[in-house]
Design a binder for these strands. Structure first.
Length: 369
DNA sequence: TCTGGGGTCCTAGGACCC
DNA sequence: TCTGGGGTCCTAGGACCC
């Protein structure tokens, strides 16, 4: 399940909850199929409203962004005034409510907006920051999840004020250097991060949880091919290439492992990513000749492919090494991209992914298409 | 209560180099 | 020949966020 209304949340329904459980908790709930295209369109529209105010917009997700309005005040009035105007425009143009936190720093604005949801406006003036923060529970801090909260509780710390009154070395011992130092600074309202509109992705990935656990090598290989194609497509869309390919496997018992390999050159080629991913999964004993005896093969619940160490694709194609010949896979991707552009996402795809439940495994990596 | 899918960042150990 | 320290890169795992 993707999300839940506040009425459903009153029954204990949360986002990311399995559908069956959500229905159990709230049998009267209406279930609506998601419309991702509509969400994307609304997202683009509200981000444009933000950019009408300032170029310093850092999107946090489809429906959230940080805005630095310091320079916009001369034009549009005080920060609270700007916030109210944005809320009005979003309501008028998109028929959506939104919550806005106004504060001297990003993390205080974030906490403020969280606490005035839904459809609220919270303004925390600079001299009110500590009075606002210190009574809040430690879990309200951005970056304090269940684990860190438990560790803080073991130290007898329950509020942000408690963190502020604790020596930073105590926090570092309990939570690690980075987190300990960071939380202590936040507890005093110190956050030097600036709104940076130029952030680019560090990794691109795709993963899938199976409805039922998979043991069939052919099915695993097919999914690997599909995921590799999606990742490569995202890379080409962003004009990026990846040097590191990693796979993620979650077994039936929820144990999760990752394996990664860094290549000499960055790639955005479906087949290259698929070949590397296949190698990594083979090394785990799930595919190929080294596959463990059938009885020992763990059922796989989730399979993922991720591309990291991204570099700009630039204009030039990959340097061919001595004795190396272009193999046609990159050209195949380009042709397929153009076909999908014209005829839709499902226009072309690997034959191995055609809809036959027990189809043959995809072609092995090497060899021209 | 058995847990989506997209990400970010941190830690820790090992290899390698100066 | 041995030793130390620092920096960088890579890999694996884990916490956390929306």
């Amino acid at each position: 399940m993707l999300s839940a209304t506040y009425e459903a949340r009153a029954y204990g329904v949360r986002s990311a909850m399995p559908m069956a459980r959500a229905r159990r908790l709230c049998p009267t709930a209406a279930v609506v199929a998601p419309d991702h295209a509509a969400y994307r369109a609304a997202s683009v529209a509200i981000m444009k409203i933000f950019r009408d105010v300032t170029p310093l917009v850092a999107p946090l997700s489809v429906d959230e962004a940080f805005l630095d309005v310091a320079g916009a005040r001369a034009l549009f009035g005080s920060a609270p005034r700007i916030a109210a105007d944005i809320r009005r425009r979003v309501a008028a143009e998109q028929d959506l409510t939104c919550s806005v936190g106004v504060a001297p720093s990003m993390f205080v604005a974030k906490i403020a907006s969280t606490r005035c949801k839904p459809d609220g406006l919270a303004v925390i003036a600079p001299d009110a920051v500590l009075a606002f923060l210190h009574p809040l529970p430690t879990g309200a801090l951005w970056g304090v999840g269940p684990r860190a909260e438990a560790a803080l509780t073991r130290l007898g710390l329950h509020t942000i004020g408690d963190i502020a009154d604790t020596p930073v070395d105590t926090l570092r011992r309990a939570l690690g250097d980075a987190v300990g130092t960071h939380l202590h600074r936040l507890s005093w309202g110190i956050d030097e991060r600036r709104v940076d509109p130029a952030t680019t992705e560090v990794t691109v990935g795709a993963e899938r949880t199976f409805a039922t656990d998979i043991t069939e090598p052919a099915a695993l290989a097919r999914e690997l091919l599909r995921l590799s194609g999606r990742v490569a497509g995202q890379l080409r869309l962003r004009h990026r290439r990846a040097r590191t390919i990693s796979v993620k496997v979650r077994y039936g018992d929820f144990r999760t492992v990752t394996r990664a390999r860094t290549l000499r050159d960055g790639t955005d080629v479906s087949q290259a990513i698929y070949a590397t991913a296949t190698d990594l999964v083979t090394d785990l004993g799930l595919l190929g000749a080294g596959r463990a005896a059938a009885a020992e093969v763990m059922a796989v619940r989730l399979l993922g492919v991720r591309a990291g160490n991204l570099v700009d694709a630039g204009g030039a194609s990959k340097q061919l090494r001595l004795g190396e010949r272009p193999d046609g896979w990159a050209e195949l991707d380009r042709v397929a991209d153009r076909a999908r552009e014209r005829f839709g996402a499902d226009a072309v795809g690997p034959a191995a992914l055609l809809d036959h439940p027990e189809g043959p495994p995809p072609a092995p990596p090497p060899g021209p298409p």
